[in-house]
């Protein structure tokens, strides 16, 4: 299925609404201001999916959920290791710098962040389009970025050489700015229904 540049614009706009809602949820959770960049939607190679987020061997924590329903997609939240440790400190009420490994508690916190943000994201899009979107349980990985992203692509059936990637940066502005990436990978074949629901001709 071909996606026109007009349709990519629509995906960016829908992404923007969903991401805005997710960022609000995170801001409420952390009780602090969160900045978001304008989402970018484009087709990228497997290597580019990594390059857009960071460097291959950088240590990251990634929470991913599979979205089923009228649109099929994969959602990924990717935090630098340091950024994830700080979020876990903050949300568990520990002193900054306490978390140095992701233990059972840290995993639960990280997965719950993924649940909440994905729920907010999908809620906004569902309301906008009237589509039914159901997230899976969250999955967590903590390792090299380059080992995690291709694994997510392989696990969730992204078998083409190009992947449609909608991504945005979340920034916490307290102290040192901490950037995390929100990535949405829609299954291209499932977008037809979305464009139809928005009255766009195929």
């Amino acid at each position: 299925m071909q996606i026109s540049s007009q349709e990519l614009d629509v995906l960016q706009e829908i992404g923007n609404i969903g991401v805005g809602n997710a960022a609000t949820a995170l801001a409420n959770l952390l009780q602090e201001k969160i900045d978001i960049s304008v989402p970018q939607a484009r087709f990228v190679s497997l290597e580019e999916t990594i390059g857009i987020v960071g460097s291959i061997e950088s240590a990251v924590v990634c929470v991913t959920l599979r979205v089923e329903g009228d649109i099929k997609a994969t959602v990924l939240f990717i935090f630098s290791e340091e950024g994830a440790f700080q979020l876990i400190d903050l949300l568990t009420g520990m002193d900054p710098g306490s978390t140095a490994v992701i233990d059972e508690m840290g995993r639960s916190v990280a997965m719950e962040i993924g649940n909440i943000l994905t729920g907010s994201f999908l809620g906004a899009i569902g309301e906008l389009t009237g589509m039914r979107l159901t997230p899976s349980v969250p999955y967590l990985a903590h390792d090299m970025l380059g080992a995690i992203l291709p694994t997510a692509l392989a696990e969730f059936g992204y078998n083409d050489d190009q992947v449609l990637m909608i991504q945005t940066t979340f920034t916490r502005n307290t102290g040192d700015a901490i950037h995390s990436k929100f990535v949405l990978l829609p299954d291209v074949m499932s977008l037809k229904q979305l464009f139809l629901s928005l009255g766009m001709e195929q």
């Binding site: 991913t64 995993r107 639960s108 997965m111 899976s136 349980v137 969250p138 999955y139 967590l140 990985a141 390792d143 080992a147 995690i148 694994t151 997510a152 392989a154 696990e155």
Partner: peptide
């Protein structure tokens, strides 16, 4: 061929590494 993703739900196992 590692298993990179873990979930709290034992029935949801992602392990394409093993198949590879």
């Amino acid at each position: 061929g590692a298993q990179m993703f873990m979930s709290n739900d034992k029935s949801s196992v992602l392990n394409i590494g093993q198949r590879n």
